[in-house]
Each structure stands twice: as structure tokens, then as C-alpha cells.
Design a protein around this nucleic acid. Structure first.
Length: 498
RNA sequence: GGUCCGUUCGUCUAGGGGUUAGGACACGUCCCUUUCACGGAUGAAACACGGGUUCGAUUCCCGUACGGACUACCA
């Protein structure tokens, strides 16, 4: 039997889920669905200092909004529970102890202050400090201290960390599914902390132990993890799990729209666009805008994000989640970072907005109007806006008579013919019972014909009189929606004031 | 500084030893239209550089440059 694919999305609850994290989750999900595997959600909350209230709920609701379904993990449970790392301390303790017993890890008693001092010292001499095979023999740890001293320190409750004893000379190589073979020498890796002095594991230990225990087959994560991947390979080796080690795929980064570097919250504020799926309002007052609240449809975000770093190799641009599942493959993910271009996201939103039915849009955004009218309004504006809420704004404006008139249009189009035509048209409207776009149009045409004035001479002036501006959707339909009384009042006002 | 990763139009990208280097966004022009959008058509726009290998390199190899990530008892 072939092994079932199991992937995981493993965010830290340190704040709102960043858009790059959403894409990572999406790619994991797509692979799982494509290959009939399982998608896990694990919360990596081993840093108590960075824990943010509400972040976990935010992650869950973001994934839910986007339709990225979790098969196993936080929120749904499963055979490897618990899926919150803070609840798995005993497990990490046990595995750290195993490494200690086998001499593959050691206790270190150096304080942060001592290490900082050491770093400064090295730096002043132009080199970088590394806690490694070269320096560990001169530092305070269970390799340099006698067994009695170590026992005494432990018994006295002195704080300590557990570090991996990285082999001095070992070639590490692993095949990244996106970047192919990556080679690193163990001498460039330092003795990373596995267990912190607070008794919780670091990311490195926890992620390797959990991925192994949870039988993860593919680790799909951001490129920022690439440099520590060799360390993880070393860890799998130390545990004797190399044969079942998951395959790695390091995703290209999402870059700032201008210049270079990782996309950040700051770029979003500068550019006036969101980088978080949902709006974020932290208890401490931190706020950020979200794609959902800005009016981006979930289909937009999914499609847009999927195409930032991946491409099906065809010329098709529009992909539903289902279509993505079918088309997705790890091989087609690019190596280089992708700049975040909000323009493309807006275009996608326009496309998906037009794909939505008039009925659903009316029901969702125009509840203030009776359904018949709401539908007419949707048809009027659907193809002219980027975000659905703009339809609401436009609709409201429709029922407010203009306060002023566009001066340029007045100068160009408000002439005697126009005035004469509009005055006659207004009189004709008074006796018009069927106030429909069609009837209005006929009335206008007949009126102007009898006056010997061409339609084109009057249309812009009429639009100006009704709306105050020279541009907009079909005037006849607008008049129908505004209604007879409203239109006549507006014509009167324009005739009097202009 | 060190380690690792990357580099096709402004942006997202397709492609890959011989192509008019294709598409999409944005931009220009034209058409449609009562205007503005939509839509349609069309235009401008790219293989970082230098060496190899080869009959031939944008494609393969090596350098260089540039960019990025990482370099915590953070993930």
C-alpha cells in the first residue's frame, strides 16, 4: 500500500495570519486534496512571550472563510492530539531526554548575558560567535563540566537549556522539491537550542518531533525556513528517523510591491492595501484592515494567492478552488520571490464580482431596497465597480439629488437647445404613467423629434441635470430607478439654477 | 561578515539548445456607446553581465554582479 499524503499548516499564534501564511496553507491544502491526503493544523505556540490573545481564533476563522478545510488538528481533533504544542511539553521532554542519553545533546548553563557578551567579543574581533564544536569545549555545559557538577546544578534548579551536539564534520544534503538538492556542511551549523530554560521546546525540536509523530509526508513552508532545514535533517538523523523523513518544499517569498524584501504589514499601510485575510482588532488596540472587509471575495484571494509563485503552465487565469486542486502540482511552483501587486487582485475581484449572480449580490448588499429595485441597481453597477460595497454606495447616491453640477460639463453642454429640450421633456414626463426606461426613452425621443433637436445635443445636459455629472451608467435606467417625482424635481432644479 | 537561495516585459508568469520569446495585470491607441465604465481590437514593453560547451545558447556549465532569506533560550 502506498503511503497516504499528510501535510500540515503550522502557524504561530503571534498575531493575525499574514497573507504569506495563507498562501502556505493554501498550497498545503491543494496538495492534500490533489493527492487524496490529509491536511493538518498544528498551532506552534511554544513561545509564551509572543503569544497573542485571539490569534488562534483568527487563524481558524481565516481558513474557514477561505474554504481551506482542516482534516485533523486544532479545532477538529484527531488521532495525534493534542495539536497545540504548548500542550505537548511532556513529549518533547521525553525526546530531548533520549538525545541527552545517547550523547547527541547536552545541557548548557551559559546565561543569555554571558552569550551576549561572547557575541560582542567575537564581533569586536571581526568574527561571528557560534556555539559549535569549536567553542562548546570552552563554555559552561555538560560536556565541559563533570557529571557531579552537572547534577549539582540541576539539583539546585539552575536554569539550563538543552543543545544539539552538531557533528563537526558531516555532509548534509536533502532534496528540496522546489529547489532540488541543497548541500550544507555541518560545520556551518551551530549547536541550536532544543529545549529552552522555560522547559518548552524551540521550533526546531518541536517541529521535527511533531512532524515525525504526526506522520507528515511533505513539509511545505516558506523559504525563510530553508537555512534551518539542514539542522532539521540532522535532528531526524539523531533520532534515527531519516528513512521516514518528510520531503521538503520551500516556497518562494512574497515580496514588497516596490523595492525588495519580504512583504510586511508596513508595506500594506503604505500602499493602502491589506495583507491580512480578515480585519484584526487586538485587545491591545492594534488594528489592521483585512481583505474580506475591504470587499475582496474569497474566490479572488484564493486565485490571486495561488498565482503568486505558482502557475499551471496554461493561459487560463481564472481558477476556482476545485480547479486549483485539479491543476496543482509542486513541480510548477517557482523558485524566485513574487512581488505583491494589488492591481491584479483588484482585477480578479472585478472578474469574480461579475461572475456572481445579480440575485446573490442584491440579497447580500442591497437589503435596504425591495428586491425588484435592488436587482435593477445591481445590474446598473455590477460591471462598473471593483468591490461589492461600492454598489451600495452608488445606490445611495442615486437617491440624493445633486447639490452641484460639474462645471466643465455645464460649460460644454448646457446650451439653449438643451434647455429647451429638457423643459419640454419634463412637461412630457408629467403625463407619463409607465415610468420605465423604455417609455422614458420613447418620450424623450418623441419630444426632441417634434422640437427638431437631435438626441446627442441633449443627452449630456440631461445627465447633468439628473445626476450632476457627465458620466455614469445608462441614464434611462437611472431615471426609472429614481422615479418620476425625483426626476421631475431634479429637472426643475437644474432648469432654475443653471 | 558567514551560510543558503534566487535572477524572462514595470508586475505575475509561459517556454526552453534553432520560437516573430507566448499570456495576464497595469499603460497607450482605435472600435462599440447618450457619457463613463464594460467588452472587442491593437501597440509599446523582457531572457542581468562575462566566459565556456555546442554548428547554434535566453535555455546547459562556471564565474561576476545584483537581490533576498537566515544568522535568538522567535517562529
Amino acid at each position: 500500500m502506498s503511503q497516504q499524503v499528510r501535510v500540515r499548516f503550522a502557524p504561530s499564534p503571534t498575531g493575525p495570519l499574514h497573507i504569506g501564511g495563507v498562501r502556505t496553507a493554501l498550497y498545503n491544502y491543494l496538495l492534500a486534496r490533489k493527492l487524496g491526503g490529509k491536511m493538518l493544523l498544528r498551532i506552534e505556540d511554544t513561545d509564551q512571550n509572543r503569544f497573542v490573545q485571539g490569534a488562534e481564533e483568527y487563524i481558524l476563522s481565516s481558513l474557514q472563510w477561505l474554504g481551506i478545510e482542516i482534516d485533523e488538528g486544532v479545532g477538529v481533533g484527531g488521532p495525534h492530539a493534542p495539536y497545540r504544542q504548548s500542550e505537548r511539553s511532556a513529549i518533547y521532554q521525553q525526546y530531548a531526554q533520549q538525545l541527552l542519553n545517547e550523547g547527541k545533546a547536552y545541557y548548557a548553563f551559559d546565561t543569555s548575558e554571558e552569550l551576549d557578551a561572547m557575541r560582542q567579543n567575537f564581533e569586536s574581533q571581526g568574527s561571528a560567535f557560534q556555539y559549535n564544536a569549536l567553542t562548546r569545549t570552552r563554555l559552561k555545559n555538560s560536556l565541559t563540566l563533570s557529571a557531579e557538577e552537572v547534577q549539582a546544578k540541576l539539583a539546585a534548579g539552575e536554569p539550563y537549556v538543552i543543545r544539539l551536539k552538531v557533528p563537526a564534520k558531516e555532509e548534509i544534503r536533502f532534496k528540496d522539491l522546489i529547489r532540488d538538492w541543497v548541500h550544507v556542511h555541518s560545520s556551518t551549523i551551530d549547536d541550536k537550542v532544543l529545549m529552552k530554560s522555560d522547559g518548552l521546546p524551540t521550533y526546531h525540536l518541536a517541529n521535527v518531533v511533531d512532524d515525525h509523530l504526526m506522520e507528515i509526508t511533505h513539509v511545505i513552508r516558506g523559504e525563510e525556513w530553508l537555512p534551518s532545514a539542514p539542522l532539521h535533517v540532522l535532528l531526524y538523523r539523531a533520532f534515527g528517523w531519516e528513512a521516514t523523513m518528510p520531503q521538503f518544499a520551500h516556497l518562494p517569498l512574497l515580496l514588497k510591491p516596490e523595492g525588495n524584501g519580504k512583504l510586511s504589514k508596513r508595506d500594506a499601510e503604505l500602499g493602502g492595501f491589506p495583507v491580512f485575510p480578515l480585519a484584526w482588532n487586538a485587545p491591545d488596540g492594534t488594528k489592521a484592515i483585512g481583505f474580506r472587509e475591504e470587499g475582496y471575495l474569497k474566490e479572488t484571494l484564493i486565485n490571486f494567492l495561488a498565482f503568486l509563485g505558482w502557475n499551471p503552465g496554461t493561459e487560463q487565469e481564472m481558477f476556482s478552488m476545485e480547479a486549483l486542486v485539479t491543476a496543482f502540482s509542486l513541480e510548477k511552483i517557482n523558485k524566485s520571490g513574487a512581488k505583491f501587486d494589488i492591481q491584479k487582485a483588484k482585477w480578479y475581484n472585478e472578474q469574480y464580482l461579475r461572475l456572481r449572480s445579480d440575485e446573490s449580490l442584491a440579497a447580500e448588499f442591497l437589503t435596504a431596497y425591495e428586491s425588484d429595485k435592488a436587482l435593477k441597481i445591481v445590474r446598473l453597477f455590477k460591471e462598473r465597480v471593483t468591490f461589492p460595497q461600492q454598489i451600495t454606495t452608488e445606490a445611495q447616491a442615486l437617491f440624493v439629488a445633486p447639490e452641484s453640477y460639474d462645471a466643465a460639463v455645464v460649460a460644454a453642454k448646457w446650451n439653449d437647445d438643451a434647455k429647451k429640450g429638457i423643459a419640454a421633456f419634463k412637461e412630457a414626463l408629467v403625463s407619463l404613467d409607465d415610468f420605465s426606461a423604455d417609455a422614458i426613452k420613447h418620450t424623450l425621443a418623441d419630444t426632441l423629434t417634434s422640437l427638431g433637436i437631435k438626441m446627442g445635443k441633449v443627452m449630456q445636459a440631461l445627465r447633468l441635470a439628473v445626476t450632476g455629472v457627465g458620466a455614469g451608467p445608462d441614464l434611462m435606467l437611472m431615471m426609472e430607478i429614481i422615479g418620476k417625482e425625483g426626476v421631475i424635481a431634479r429637472l426643475d432644479k437644474a432648469l432654475q439654477t443653471l
